[in-house]
Nucleic acid binder design. Structure first.
Length: 599
RNA sequence: GCGCCCGUAGCUCAAUUGGAUAGAGCAUCGGCCUUCGAAGCCGAGGGUUGCAGGUUCGAGUCCUGCCGGGCGCGCCA
């Protein structure tokens, strides 16, 4: 019989209790496998779960159920056999077979008490893992067009992307955060022209503003700065501007395109470029500043222009062509994405010779892989879902593995003020910006609320709830737990005590009240939660965990006094709540939410 | 019409990716402050997981068909 190797041995570091139990089961399976009782060519994956109900112990494994199927044996009998082969352990109180053949583990109090020194020793690093093994991962998020301020939807993408990035970093990936700046397409022309038209209005020209232009107030601000800087040097008359003959009443898109042409002609290439660059710079600064205050930072801002200028886009199109997936039709060049399951083929080069946004995106993603990232993550608004198939198709056509790119779609946000739903229209520039939201509810509540739901769920964001400083508000509930612990420690000093960490760690066996065990068990779950949330790109799991942890702490607080007279007990309890404080802070940190000492 | 996502307590959402008796928070009702912060704690009620089939030891989760909602379906980005 083959000996199945175990990754780690029992004598090595403790690590997660879950992994520890996994090893125990491995030993048991190995034993009966070597005895010839069962015959396994390779080790099955041994799943260990936290029991949902305390009646089922602390951990449970369904491994015998799967194994029984393979071996053609009775699951309960096999489970019983495994239990009898488990190596003895001081961490396991008992292991029993239950239900269809589950193995339930009841742990000793000591097993959980042992987590406290780990937390205190690791501090900010507690919960981190090395699964990523330093592999480079690139995560692209927000990437809003620089044609206006960020709105609520971008806020959700920003909060989500930032938390996923933090989680991946926590489990050992080398994370590179990137914002893709769409500064090369038609939208930029419309932006530049919108600014110029407002500038002309400021100069006193009465020109009707095109409905396809950007109408937001921020356009006035940019125009005003242009006028301050350049005075009337960019002025043209109403007659010159309106001379193209198109009308806003006929075809709004054609009209704006004509105005763009007029702007380019009247200003000349250099001055037109200055207007565009000024608008772009101001908007990007605004976005960068906004995100900075939101606690969201990027390692790199990647400009689409760069792809155009260094011919990466042309190269990508040529590569697709050489792979045999490009053809010409109606004067345009098409990518045969239907060969990879897309609904229809997509244009790469337009009839007018200009490459499409899609062509840039192919080049951009190809470049990401060529820069050495093995794992790519894109966070997109759900309205872009139709885009997934074509981008993956392009990667596949270029000989890349499409599964190296994970596209996470973030659903829309509906804003509520209590029961009242706030209208969100992007047209006419009347939408609530991220900045307004941040100023109204604060960064902490905004960050927390945005990640509280799974990314593929619609999010109802209640401004009143986010602002309320009450138990209804989960952010305050969690922060309050943190502040309460800080407050206890202040009281400690006022009473003339000092926390004796060593004595505390030596008396952890004193922590055996039900409330204490509940809290200890929750604390030990934290590394498991971080790992799961990271692997599944699901920061909401951290939010739910913190809520439960805070609840366990508040319950403990109400049931017992920490600052008791007896030194050994006091120091043990302080060790527990200081460890709790550490875990709350680590969790909040992953979510970009602050941990205040007082509230 | 076609494609993708979603449908779980009155409301907003979880559910260890196929595991045991589907759980939280609001809201409702009832208790707990002379005490380390009541921004807190404890308890109660509330469910045919949209509907109907199927797959298996086992389904909220997987497959099929309906019903209802959201989003896409440009030589825009």
């Amino acid at each position: 019989m083959p000996t199945i190797k175990t990754k780690t041995s029992l004598t090595e570091g403790v690590g997660l209790l879950r992994n520890y139990l996994q090893i125990l089961l491995q030993e048991a399976i190995n034993k009966i496998n070597q005895d010839g009782e069962i015959s396994l060519p390779s080790l099955p994956t041994i799943r260990i779960e936290r029991s949902r109900s305390s009646e089922h112990g602390d951990f449970a494994s369904p491994v015998a159920l799967g194994l029984a199927r393979v071996c053609g044996r009775n699951p309960r009998q096999l489970a019983q056999r495994l239990v009898s082969c488990l190596p003895p352990s001081e961490k396991v109180e008992s292991a029993v077979v239950a239900g269809a053949g589950f193995i339930n583990f009841f742990m000793t109090a000591r097993a959980f008490q042992g987590e406290i020194p780990e937390i205190l020793a690791q501090g900010n690093r507690y919960g981190c893992a090395t699964i990523g093994e330093g592999r480079p991962v690139q995560i692209e998020f927000v990437s809003a067009n620089p044609t206006g301020p960020l709105h609520i939807g971008h806020g959700r993408g920003a909060a989500y992307g930032a938390s996923v990035a933090a989680l991946l970093e926590a489990i050992g990936y080398a994370v590179h955060r990137e914002y893709y700046v769409n500064d090369a397409g038609r939208q930029m022309d419309i932006l530049a022209t919108s600014v110029w038209l407002r500038y002309l209005e400021l100069c006193g020209e009465e020109i009707p503003f095109p409905s396809a232009g950007y109408r937001g107030d921020y356009i006035w601000d940019i125009a005003a700065s242009l006028r301050r800087e350049e005075s009337n040097a960019y002025r043209a008359s109403r007659e010159e501007v309106m001379g193209s003959g198109t009308s806003d009443n006929d075809d709004q898109e054609a009209h704006i395109d004509a105005l763009v042409g007029t702007a380019k002609a009247l200003l000349g290439k250099d001055r037109y470029q200055i207007v565009m660059n000024r608008a772009l710079a101001m908007l990007l600064n605004d976005i960068r500043d906004d995100l900075g205050h939101f606690g969201v930072h990027f390692d790199h801002w990647y400009h689409e222009r760069r792809l155009v200028e260094n011919s990466a886009v042309d190269l990508a199109v040529r590569s697709l062509d050489e792979a045999g997936y490009v053809y010409e039709q109606d004067g345009a060049r098409w990518f045969r994405s239907t060969a990879f399951g897309d609904e229809k083929d997509r244009v790469l080069v337009r009839e007018n010779g200009q490459t499409t946004y899609f062509a840039s995106d192919v080049a951009y993603h190809l470049g990401k892989l060529e820069r050495g990232f093995q794992k790519l993550i894109d966070v997109w608004g759900a309205d872009h879902h139709g885009y997934v198939a074509r981008l993956k198709a392009a990667l596949q056509a270029l000989g890349k593995d499409p599964s190296s790119l994970a596209i996470l779609l973030v659903q829309f946000v509906s804003l509520f003020r209590g029961k009242e739903r706030l209208p969100m229209s992007t047209r006419s520039g009347e939408f609530i910006t991220l900045r307004q939201l941040r100023k109204e509810v604060g960064r902490d509540a905004a960050r927390f609320f945005f990640i509280m739901r799974k990314h593929d769920q619609h999010l109802d964001f209640d401004l009143e709830l986010a602002k309320s400083q009450s138990a209804d508000n989960p952010v305050y509930y969690i922060q309050y737990a943190y502040a309460r612990i800080c407050s206890v420690l202040r009281q400690l000093g006022e009473k003339g005590y000092l926390w004796d960490r060593r004595q505390g760690e030596q008396n952890l066996h004193r922590l055996c009240e039900p409330h204490e065990l509940t809290l200890l068990k929750s604390l030990s779950r934290y590394p498991e939660v971080v790992e799961s949330a990271a692997v599944e790109h699901a920061p909401h799991q951290v939010a739910f965990f913190l809520r439960e942890l805070a609840n366990d702490f508040h319950a403990y607080y109400n049931a017992h006094t920490f600052l008791v007279e007896e030194d050994s007990m006091r120091n043990a309890r302080l060790a527990l709540i200081i460890a709790t404080r550490q875990v709350v802070r680590n969790g909040l940190d992953l979510l970009g939410v602050s941990a205040p000492d007082t509230m």
